[in-house]
Design a protein around this nucleic acid. Structure first.
Lengths: 122, 122
DNA sequence: CTCTATGCAAAAACTTTGCAGGGAT
DNA sequence: ATCCCTGCAAAGTTTTTGCATAGAG
């Protein structure tokens, strides 16, 4: 799916800055935070966060907080769970878990705990 | 289980302020944030956050961020999942979900999405 | 008695807002 | 031409740190 299709029919304008931002998030193999993207997008942080909010409102994007107190962002394609390690703060996609809850609409699942490599290094 | 037992054998001292804090968290039916507790504990916010960190290190407590950018805290008894509504930011305990991941140690599961009452009010 | 815990104030980290100018449709 | 988007600077919110005093073991 192309980025333009994600934005199409939504209540937002298609700007080069937005396409760039969404493409970076889409190509990443895990959610990213502002700090990890800021050098690759030529976009002010105010604009970044404003766009993130827009994308969330329009349902294009998932956001969640890690244990490092930062927000992580991901384009909402191929929904899957995320593991956040409380020791090393790494964020990892977990594809083989499927959760449903009657009467709830689920955007994202975040699992907090200790990852295998941190468990091994104790 | 009594609060004193939670602290026993841990590397921290048993103070009245800590017992009070843990008791409030233990009695609550859902995770609470600093704002919700501050009037009930006579504890400075610096001390509050320092104690939270201690409790986390000692494995007494789970913490996670909601969509309102605040951290929510819960005593780690009877582990269960949590649902955080992206619309109203309510935090709810979900008892009937059980997740295991080989090679991972799981502390907490957070599900983001829209809760039944927000879904109904659209 | 010693070392940890606490309160206060000030700082830090991340995110949001105001405003004026630029860009998409 | 209109209205949304953007950058810059400044403010806001939540959490953390420094330091001197109080308290637990």
């Amino acid at each position: 799916m192309k980025i333009e299709e994600l934005i199409k029919d939504k209540n937002i304008k298609l700007t080069t800055a937005r396409v760039k931002l969404l493409e970076i998030l889409k190509e990443a193999d895990r959610p990213l935070c502002y700090e990890e993207i800021k050098n690759d997008i030529s976009m002010d942080k105010a604009t970044f966060y404003r766009n993130i909010s827009k994308f969330e409102e329009e349902g294009i994007l998932n956001a969640f907080e890690s244990n490092d107190k930062k927000r992580y962002f991901e384009v909402r394609l191929n929904p899957h769970a995320h593991f956040v390690c409380v020791k090393c703060n790494s964020v990892e996609c977990i594809k083989n878990i499927d959760i449903t809850l009657p009467n709830y609409e689920i955007n994202n699942v975040i699992i907090n705990g200790t990852c295998p490599s941190c468990l091994a290094s104790v």
